[in-house]
Structures are given as structure tokens and as C-alpha cells.
């Protein structure tokens, strides 16, 4: 019986297609990683292995440009992800812990709105808006735009986590005369920590990842890592771009892995 049962789950050709899927997803990234260690200045010919382009990234002619861009990217992502996480945590508490209130269903649509509007439309609208109110494009406009689209990404894991926490602990606290603020700070928040952290990390990556909206609202002079890379790639892919790509790729993978494990933290030993 068991073998027959298993058989029904199996379709010929699905396994190869899954491997093909995995191959398609990873091949381009792995190739770029390999070629980033290529000593040759031409991206076509393979010479020998070296760390030359990594040295170039950190100490070469363009190093200051990329360093500033990295600094901008990281600080923007930190500010945007922190703000979005705070806003999303409050919003989740409102949506899941505060009973009914006016505009609740509209609020749900609003939080997800940044996911529905195409990125390029958000970019155009934000650019036009800042120009219309005479707000100078630059660092601050990037931060504000990033907070907006980070909110739904922070909200998803936070709300998912909150939904999984029973409110018996909070009720117990209230029965023992804890104020609502104490209940929130001493009971809900600690239980929420994994969800909040994983929401923060996702928002951080999303901010770090953004090119199109940043490109529209950055104005002249301020560059983030993606816009700097895009600018460099316009003239063709150079080996140092591959080295930067590899580094950024590793950062993303580390962050997602962290977010994944943090998000699952404490779920088993509840």
C-alpha cells in the first residue's frame, strides 16, 4: 500500500525538471562567482585564479566610489528597515490584538499596497511627488521611499508570528494587574522577537536590493550600491563588478539564512 501511495505522488519527468529549475536558478550566480576569481582583465578568457579583482574592489581606483555607495546603501537599509519594523509591529498589534476598529479592512489593503503597485509606478509617483512639494531629491527621499516598500515585507513575518502566539499569557498578565503597556513590553514583545528580527532582516535585504525606486528618487550625487553597479555596468561587465556581485551575493545569502533560522527560533520549544 505504502509503495502505491508514494507512486501516486510521482510523475515522470518532474524530478529532472526540478533539477533543471535549481540549475537555472544557480548556474548564472555560480558562474559569476567563479569568474570573479579570474586573473584575466578580459571577462571572456580564463587565465588563472587570483584575488586581484577583490583587491581592486577594496583598494583600486574606484574603491572610494563603491565604499561611499556601500555606506549609503547600508545606512539607508538600516534606517528604513528599523522604521518599517517598528511601524509593522505596531500595525500587526493593531490588526491582530486590538479587536475591531474603524478602517480595519482598509488598513489591510493599505499595508499590502506597496506590493500591488508596480515598482516603476511607485518610482515615478514618488519622484513627481517630491518634485511637486519642492523636496530636494537625495538621501532623505531615498530613505522615505524605502520605508514605504519595506513595511509589507516586515509586516508579513511579524504578523505570521503574532498569529501563532496565544494570548493566554497576556491575559494572565492582565489578570495580575499588569498595565497594557507592561503586557506589551514584558509578554508580547519578547515572544515576538524572532518574528520581529526576521521581519527586520527581510526589510533590510529588500532595501539593499532596490534599484529602480532608488534610481528615480536619488537625485544627483547620492549613489547606493545597486545604482553605482548599474552605472558601471552600462559600459559593459568588468571583472571588478563580478567581485562586488559575489560579495553582495554572499551578504544576501547570509542574511536570508539568518532570517530563516531566527524566524524558526523558539517555534519548536514553545
Amino acid at each position: 500500500m505504502a509503495s502505491k501511495n508514494l507512486d501516486l505522488r510521482r510523475f515522470p519527468g518532474f524530478l529532472p525538471l526540478t533539477y533543471l529549475c535549481l540549475f537555472l536558478l544557480y548556474a548564472p550566480l555560480i558562474i559569476v562567482m567563479i569568474y570573479s576569481f579570474n586573473d584575466s582583465a578580459s571577462i571572456t578568457r580564463w587565465d588563472s585564479m587570483s584575488l586581484r579583482w577583490y583587491q581592486e574592489v577594496f583598494f583600486g581606483v574606484e574603491a572610494p566610489k563603491f565604499r561611499t555607495a556601500t555606506f549609503n546603501s547600508v545606512t539607508i537599509a538600516l534606517i528604513a528597515a528599523t522604521s518599517a519594523t517598528i511601524i509593522a509591529t505596531m500595525a500587526a498589534t493593531a490588526m491582530l490584538r486590538s479587536g475591531k476598529f474603524r478602517g480595519k479592512s482598509a488598513s489591510f489593503a493599505l499595508i499590502n499596497l506597496p506590493l500591488m503597485v508596480p515598482e516603476i509606478v511607485t518610482a515615478v509617483a514618488t519622484l513627481i511627488f517630491f518634485s511637486a512639494i519642492g523636496f530636494k531629491a537625495g538621501y532623505l527621499t531615498i530613505v522615505l521611499a524605502h520605508i514605504v516598500f519595506c513595511i509589507p515585507f516586515a509586516y508579513l513575518p511579524i504578523a505570521a508570528r503574532m498569529q501563532g502566539i496565544e494570548d493566554t499569557f497576556e491575559q494572565a498578565a492582565q489578570d495580575l494587574y499588569a498595565t497594557r503597556f507592561q503586557t506589551f513590553r514584558l509578554i508580547l514583545l519578547p515572544l515576538m522577537t524572532p518574528g520581529i528580527l526576521s521581519g527586520f532582516l527581510l526589510a533590510f535585504i529588500i532595501s539593499l536590493d532596490d534599484f529602480i525606486i532608488t534610481n528615480f528618487v536619488k537625485g544627483a550625487g547620492v549613489e547606493t550600491l545597486p545604482t553605482a553597479i548599474y552605472g558601471a555596468v552600462r559600459q559593459g561587465i568588468k571583472p571588478n563588478i563580478m567581485a562586488i556581485s559575489t560579495l553582495l551575493l554572499l551578504v544576501s545569502v547570509v542574511f536570508v539564512t539568518l532570517s530563516y533560522f531566527v524566524g524558526r527560533m523558539g517555534e519548536k520549544n514553545k
Partner: peptide, 10 residues
Amino acid sequence: WVNLLIRTIS
């Protein structure tokens, strides 16, 4: 989660 720009360049 890898940067879309980097994936496209790859």
C-alpha cells in the same frame, strides 16, 4: 533574495 540587478547581470 539575491539582488535582482546582480542576478540580471549574471
